[in-house]
């Protein structure tokens, strides 16, 4: 499989980038710091540990995903290695898919590493790991997968710097899903139309933030498993959309 060969090579390259390791170490450090903050607030040590840990995974994951994925395609063009690849029997969609799979694998490795540290901390502090904690890490991973697809999509036509701001911007807007949802029922027509478009068309990153239910064991949502399945499906389909768009653009890109 050509995309897999490209993905494999992408992972090897990405794992050698220092900046990624810095973010990973910061993330792990923040997670490990959870109990320290917990001691400051004994009654809420569990809340602090969980919220800080999940936030650290999200924050580090966010930066790792963006800084990794914005460079995947541009660096090949800059180094001209893309000439050697596309002049071989490699279709452009295979190249985009390979790059995405590679970025996705890097994100997976990082989230998994931080997730393991986080779950170990929980295990250490609370004596057991509630099943929900896995779900939190899991959904963050799918959130980052969607972000990776978005960043790859932008990288087919934007410079890394521009891409950084665009991906970050869309991530912020996408995180305001509760706000955009309320706009869909706005009485001002223009706001309603804009809100509806944003809410239903832009990638909705806010969906994946289920930290609240994890931090408060008593906080229950109806059908959490269905919700998680819907979100995973959403991430997969939306990533596919972004990749197809990326291919449409990259097919026309002069390299």
């Amino acid at each position: 499989m050509v995309p897999l060969a490209i993905a494999r090579q992408t992972v090897r390259e990405a794992l050698r980038r220092r900046v990624m390791w810095i973010f990973l170490i910061c993330g792990v450090f923040l997670i490990a710091l959870g109990p320290v903050f917990g001691f400051l607030s004994p009654k809420d040590s569990q809340t602090v540990l969980r919220s800080l840990g999940l936030a650290a995974i999200l924050l580090a994951g966010l930066f790792i995903t963006i800084v990794t994925c914005i460079y995947l395609i541009p660096v090949e063009i800059e180094r001209r290695t893309i000439y050697t690849i596309l002049s071989k029997p490699v279709q452009r969609f295979e190249f985009v898919l390979g790059k995405f799979l590679g970025g996705f694998a890097v994100v997976f490795i990082n989230i998994a590493a931080m997730g393991i540290v986080f779950l170990l901390m929980i295990r250490f502090q609370e004596g057991k790991v509630p099943a929900d904690m896995y779900k939190g890490v899991f959904l963050t991973f799918f959130q980052m997968m969607l972000l990776a697809a978005l960043t790859i999509f932008f990288s087919t036509f934007a410079t890394p710097v521009l891409n950084f701001f665009m991906s970050f911007g869309i991530f912020i807007v996408g995180n305001l899903s509760s706000v955009t949802e309320s706009l869909t029922t706005s009485r001002v027509k223009a706001t309603q139309v804009a809100g509806t478009l944003i809410h239903y068309l832009l990638p909705n990153f806010g969906n994946f933030n289920i930290q609240n239910t994890l931090i408060h064991p008593t906080q229950e949502i109806t059908n959490p498993d269905v919700f998680i399945r819907q979100n995973i499906l959403y991430a997969l389909i939306y990533s596919a959309v972004l990749l197809i768009l990326a291919v449409i653009i990259f097919d026309r890109r002069e390299v």
Binding site: S51, L52, L54, A55, A56, L58, I172, N212
Partner: peptide, 15 residues
Amino acid sequence: PLLGFREAAAGLLWV
């Protein structure tokens, strides 16, 4: 908070 760190922000504020 806008970036999905609401709970962490709340936790730190609570400390």
